[in-house]
């Protein structure tokens, strides 16, 4: 079980984080951008659980951080999707470049 060091898990979570960051930069579809944000949050969750297991296995604090991050992610997804639906209703698209009234 201890063959897998924490560096391996940090590699996976870093890769997920930067894949999500790339998606957030390059996609214009708001739903896909929101999914990239979820990927980023999940990479952070993996980090918390991994550090909790490898460095402080007698505590449970990393688990609680992950639980609250999941909670906030759920609330954030609900509010963001309602904003997306509202945007679609007024612009007939969810392209971020179409919603540029407040840009200037």
């Amino acid at each position: 079980m201890n063959q897998i060091t924490i560096t391996h898990i940090l590699f996976v979570s870093t890769a997920l984080f930067f894949i999500g960051m790339y998606g957030l930069f390059t996609r214009r579809n708001m739903i896909t951008m929101l999914m990239s944000v979820e990927l980023i949050l999940n990479s952070v969750n993996i980090n918390f659980v991994a550090f909790n297991k490898y460095l402080y296995p007698q505590n449970l604090d990393g688990i609680f951080f992950t639980i609250f991050i999941i909670t906030i992610a759920a609330a954030e997804a609900a509010v963001a999707i309602s904003i997306i639906i509202n945007l679609y209703r007024s612009h007939q698209s969810i392209d971020v470049d179409d919603a540029s009234e407040m840009k200037y």
């Binding site: 897998i4 898990i9 739903i31 929101l34 999914m35 979820e38 999940n42 969750n45 659980v49 991994a50 909790n52 297991k53 688990i63 992950t66 639980i67 999941i70 992610a73 759920a74 997804a77 609900a78 999707i81």
Partner: peptide
């Protein structure tokens, strides 16, 4: 694998069950 089975269950229920259905 990281010995957090409870987190795995919560993750599947909340993410795959609720958030992804919303998406």
């Amino acid at each position: 694998m990281l010995n957090a089975q409870f987190m795995a269950i919560v993750h599947i229920i909340v993410y795959a069950g609720a958030i992804m259905v919303l998406f």
